[in-house]
Amino acid sequence: MAFIEVKNLSKVYTNGEVSVDALKDVSFEIDEAEILSILGPSGCGKSTLLNCLSGIDEPTSGQVIIDGIDIHALSDNDKTRFRAFNMGFVFQFYNLIPVLNARENVELALLTTGVPEKQARRLSVDTLDRVGLNQRAEYFPSQLSGGERQRVSIARALVHNPKIIWADEPTGALDTETSKELMDLILDLNKTNNQTFVIVTHDDRISNYSDRILHVDSGKIVSLESVKV
């Protein structure tokens, strides 16, 4: 059985009398420790797909089964807890809390899972070290560059050792060189920790790092192809 099973996933946005089909009966599977890129033009539904897969958005119909659990059948709190223990997120605009420093931002992901503060502090510093930010642990987001902020964001996603990491345009706000460094880092972490990465991007170069590429257009899967790195 696949690690993540997506069955007949549909999402309809309704605004007054206007309905938009963001996802149309999407089904596919993702294996454990796989890097899957979701590619497609702007507005094709790739972010909506990622949101529904990760459980931060509700599909109109269909199922997402992760490690045997239908996550949309869970209550909101259970779903949140499931995310806290099993998932990490990397966003295009980092979404770091501006009033917490880099270390505290990373700690937050551990504290939500009930890790004691001392241990959380130690693990956060270790993780920041792994992403090359050990010297910047006490810096606030406003004092970091875009690449550094995204590294903090990745550290926050990795620190509690989740099974899956969802990344929505992780390099969207970064320059080419920084983007490459970041993807190298993701690849390295994937190999080391055996974690599943699902990356939404519209950058072909990023997709080259993936094991498979899912092409989406107008809410439908156009193709699902394997790629050799």
């Binding site: 909101d76 807890r81 937050l108 992901a109």
Partner: peptide, 15 residues
Amino acid sequence: RLVGMMKAIGFTRGM
């Protein structure tokens, strides 16, 4: 957006 992020990484409604 930060609330969205917090909920994504495991903050429940109550939290």
